[in-house]
Computed example of a mutant assay.
Amino acid sequence: MEYRQISDDYSVSGQITADDIATIKAAGFKGIICNRPDNEQPGQPSADEIRKAVEAAGLGFRHVPLISGQPVTMEAAEAMAKALDELDGPVFAYCRSGARSTNLFLAAQQVRG
Rank of each mutant, 00 (worst) to 15 (best):
Met1Ile: 10
Met1Glu: 08
Arg4Lys: 15
Gln5Pro: 02
Ile6Phe: 10
Ser7Thr: 15
Asp8Val: 02
Tyr10Ile: 11
Ser11Gln: 07
Ser13Gln: 03
Ser13His: 02
Gly14Val: 07
Ile16His: 03
Thr17Phe: 06
Thr17Pro: 01
Asp19Glu: 15
Asp19Val: 01
Asp20Met: 06
Ile21Lys: 01
Ile21Asp: 00
Ala22Met: 11
Thr23His: 08
Ile24Arg: 04
Lys25Thr: 05
Lys25Val: 04
Ala26Met: 06
Ala26Leu: 06
Ala27Leu: 10
Ala27Trp: 08
Ala27Gln: 13
Ala27His: 11
Gly28Met: 12
Phe29Val: 08
Phe29Glu: 00
Lys30Ser: 14
Ile33Val: 15
Cys34His: 02
Cys34Leu: 02
Cys34Glu: 02
Cys34Asp: 13
Asn35Cys: 12
Asn35His: 12
Arg36Cys: 01
Arg36Lys: 04
Arg36Asp: 00
Pro37Ala: 11
Asp38Ala: 10
Asn39Phe: 06
Glu40Ile: 11
Glu40Ser: 12
Pro42Trp: 12
Pro42Ala: 15
Gly43Val: 08
Gly43Thr: 03
Gln44Ser: 05
Gln44Ile: 09
Gln44Arg: 12
Pro45Lys: 09
Ala47Pro: 05
Asp48His: 10
Glu49Pro: 01
Glu49Phe: 00
Arg51Tyr: 03
Arg51Ala: 14
Lys52Tyr: 04
Ala53Val: 10
Glu55Asp: 07
Ala57Tyr: 10
Ala57Glu: 13
Leu59Ser: 03
Gly60Phe: 03
Gly60Leu: 06
Gly60Tyr: 05
Phe61Glu: 01
Arg62Trp: 01
His63Ala: 13
His63Lys: 10
Val64Cys: 06
Val64Ser: 06
Val64Phe: 02
Pro65Asp: 00
Pro65Lys: 07
Ser68Pro: 00
Ser68Gln: 14
Gly69Asp: 05
Gly69Ile: 08
Val72Ser: 09
Met74Glu: 15
Glu75Gly: 03
Glu75Ser: 11
Ala76Cys: 02
Ala76Gly: 07
Glu78Lys: 15
Glu78His: 07
Met80Cys: 12
Ala83Cys: 09
Ala83Trp: 08
Asp85Gly: 15
Glu86Asp: 15
Leu87Asp: 05
Asp88Leu: 07
Asp88Trp: 05
Asp88Ala: 14
Gly89His: 15
Gly89Cys: 12
Pro90His: 07
Phe92Cys: 11
Ala93Lys: 04
Ala93Leu: 05
Tyr94Gln: 06
Arg96Gly: 03
Ser97Gly: 09
Ser97Leu: 06
Ser97Tyr: 02
Gly98Ile: 01
Arg100His: 02
Ser101Phe: 04
Ser101Pro: 09
Thr102Met: 12
Leu104Val: 04
Leu104Gly: 13
Leu104Cys: 09
Ala108Leu: 10
Ala108Ile: 04
Gln109Arg: 15
Gln109Gly: 01
Arg112Ile: 09
Gly113Tyr: 03
Gly113Ile: 10
